[in-house]
Design a protein around this nucleic acid. Sequence first.
DNA 1: CAAAAGCGTAACCACTGTGTTACGCGTTTG
DNA 2: CAAACGCGTAACACAGTGGTTACGCTTTTG
Lengths: 120, 120
Amino acid sequence: MDDVAAAIADPVRRQILVMLRERPLAAGQIADRFTISRPAVSRHLRVLRESGLVRDTLVGRRRLYELDASRLAGLIEWLDQFAPADDWERRLDALETEVYRTRRERSRQNATDRQQENTA
Amino acid sequence: MDDVAAAIADPVRRQILVMLRERPLAAGQIADRFTISRPAVSRHLRVLRESGLVRDTLVGRRRLYELDASRLAGLIEWLDQFAPADDWERRLDALETEVYRTRRERSRQNATDRQQENTA
DNA sequence: CAAAAGCGTAACCACTGTGTTACGCGTTTG
DNA sequence: CAAACGCGTAACACAGTGGTTACGCTTTTG
């Protein structure tokens, strides 16, 4: 998880991750979107690769990079221990509302079902 | 948010944040829990202070540090854009279970309340 | 098959970060 | 009020990071 945290610390690398969120990109395509040199981007890609945040595949003479966001799980889990209680409760409340909404819909659906049974 | 990400990147600083999760600590108390020198810890504390993750208060000749986890919000929000859908659903399921558990407890409590009403 | 494309790596340089020891300043204490 | 405490800062050494240009390897292309 240490590698992931260090990788995230750099703004260029964070930007690359955002770019790859859409779809895989070749190294050159990524480099074109930055003002820094292509080798500099290449080294950022290496850091991301070694942290596991990114997987690369050789396609002809190009190298495609794709996101592997699963490696962020550890960091997210670590951060969760700092989520304040009332934030947690806020989430819980929001989800509780969601659950009730779902239950209301289920009830309405059941009522409809019963009416249809009567009609049948 | 860049400051926060950089602050999080160091394992010593992450450990300090975990320590402060319990309660505020004086600089010396924090330093005692590390093998590195006290000035080294002091500088880590400065990084945390300047990133806003930590607030300090002078108390006599000691300096108490307390956590301010609210500054993590931006980073958490940024990370959320990479949370896969089924991870969100996993959280929802877990919280849904929590909601039902709470409701069961409330029902049991209500039942007890009614029994006590009968006794009264 | 020679030339161009696409990328990574090497070598180098400047800057930053992290550790150390020495020191200074304000606060408590005997 | 002098000594001890608590803590930050300064000065320094050194490793790591991030940028650059030059180069080389593999794959496509005309």
